[in-house]
Design a protein around this nucleic acid. Structure first.
Lengths: 205, 205, 205, 205
DNA sequence: AATGAATGAGCGTTCATTCAT
DNA sequence: AATGAATGAACGCTCATTCAT
């Protein structure tokens, strides 16, 4: 009766996430999943009632990992601009490392946004999850800025919340650029883009 | 570039664009197109060699319209923050009005980003088009900021290009939020989001 | 726009009816239909939106044929027991001939009742159709008996309606026996059973 | 013939019979059986080699019960028309009560004929069983009529065997009507139909 | 220019069955 | 005696595409 932790379920989740991120949800077929997992169709359906169920599980698996990683970041280390940048970029690095570990791959190429949009399009419930995550990520930036305020390393008279939101959307916007790049490993591009965007942010405030 | 569209061809393009924006490329079938255009399968294939061809044509149709609308905006009117905001928001309004006119509908609900990402995923060539458009849009913002500099309505010592890029990505980032809203007519939401984002931008610089 | 009378639709209906009667609805797959019609899956779906749609159409096709055949039977010919039997058996012969013609086959083996029960199980609407047909068939028997009354060839004091119902159910009941027989051509068995049942009926009244 | 059923085996038989009668053989899946029995796939296969084996066992389980019930009916009680009707209807009531007890349910909804036809379609051997049962049921009616003859409560000059066959098929035919009714508990309908049919039978002989 | 009949690969899903534990 | 993970054939159905007219 107790669920055997055979690892099959986890294998499926990893492979599915990998494929969804690489090709998009719609473009991943059960044939693909079978090929990559080495399992049979029946096994996949034994663990996930439908493709949509697999999508939701995969999605939550990814969000959970993101969230877990985020809560471990010590925002108090963000004292000045340099340490803030290090913290954020480092956190992104960790996040990518986490996903790599999650997936058990050495490189990741991902079209995260396509996957996200498709997922939301497919299942209304996922909206709430992703909106909550976005909110938490913004709050994390806000905490950093509040900490920097204490250390007098931010211009006065500027609302930390608004700065956080602004930087957050800048980062989200620039992440779209990932879509236009051809590398098999998106990590370096992510880091480059994050560095550049944070630099720009500090140049304009 | 702008293919002179015969009545039928133009009808197909409009309907296809409408459907792609609403449901995403993958979720639009020829059956949908037939239902909405009132034409036959044969007619659709007579005008567009394949679904991908229709996608490309539709995409270029949209980009061309966006580009055309943009070149008509008198960036010189952006003299101070208020007039800048008016100009940008007004321009967005015009853009939406243009798309509405293009599509011949009174309201538009669109998941532009899903459509964009799917399109790029489907056809490599489209990347170039969209990147070019993004560049032009950023340059337009830059021109506005340069003009404002002349009128001394921007903080000194801040690179107009970097400000333009930053605002651009903020706007792009926040446009993602459109995905999470339920309105049938996205226009009001767009305007609200644009106003808020530009306000925030001016609060932090 | 006007439906081309290409005969494909009719071919599909015939083949489907043949297969449904022989094997039962559930046991007929699209693969079977493809093999027997020589058409492709797409063609089948072009003409019938779903398997259930095909079932309904097939069912109505059969009922319509039964009904049409029945209305042509001259109940006034039923003057005495012998002519009544001839009429009913002849009518059944005609019905079978009609179905053979409908299907374009020389022999029919059918498990009509399995098909009927499955059909009703699959689609509620079909109940009404079949109940109406049953009613009409009973009414036909009643008309015959009324006519025989005029010719004084029936026992007095017996309600023609009740006699009609009784005979009808006897015939329906014995038709079940068809299920237990092995012939490839059910025609002879039908005739034999009908003759025997009508004889028995006259022996007991 | 009557296999002494262990608890589990008996549970499976009951649940299977219940489901087969309600939904038809084809429409009952192992998933359904698991849900209703609370057992695992393995347990089902441990007791019944295959779905067909389960069908056969279920079928024989039902026939055995019917037969057993029938042998207990005291045909000598059928002295006149009224007592005959009481006997037959009472016997049918007992039969239904028996099935209810067998299944451990308070109500039964069953499409017996669909189940029978499907079963025969699935497994040739079952034909013999059911034909034998039918014969026995007819013989039972015949015995009743012979008994009534002794009491001079039947028209003279009419062959009890033929009367028995006739009534039997009338009852079988009208049982088809059960298929068209919507009650969750078929018992009352059965009784009503049986009463009406026997009344009609006596009206025409 | 336009129709719609026909194709067949591919999809997500269900199913009875097997088997290691 | 009983579990439930795993299999893979088969199913109904959708889809972009072709083509004779």
């Amino acid at each position: 009766m107790a669920k055997r932790a055979s690892g099959t379920r986890s294998t499926i989740l990893k492979v599915a996430l990998q494929l969804f991120l690489k090709k998009g949800y719609k473009d991943v077929s059960y044939e693909d999943l079978i090929k990559e997992t080495g399992l049979s169709k029946g096994a996949l359906y034994h663990h996930f009632r439908s493709k949509e169920d697999l999508l939701i599980s995969t999605f939550e698996f990814l969000l959970e990992a993101s969230r877990q990683q985020m809560t471990e970041v010590p925002f108090k280390k963000a004292k000045d601009r340099e340490s803030f940048k290090e913290l954020i970029v480092g956190s992104k690095k960790e996040q990518i490392k986490g996903i790599k570990k999650l997936l058990g791959t050495k490189t990741i190429k991902f079209n995260k946004l396509l996957f996200f949009f498709e997922a939301i399009n497919e299942n209304e419930r996922l909206k709430a999850s992703i909106m909550e995550l976005m909110k938490e990520e913004m709050q994390f930036l806000e905490k950093c800025f509040l900490n920097m305020k204490k250390h007098d390393t931010l211009p006065k008279g500027k609302d930390p919340l608004i700065m956080a939101e602004s930087l957050y959307w800048m980062l989200q916007g620039t992440e779209m650029l990932m879509f236009f790049l051809k590398n098999n490993d998106s990590e370096k591009d992510f880091i480059k883009i994050y560095n550049k965007t944070i630099d720009n942010f500090f140049k304009i405030i």
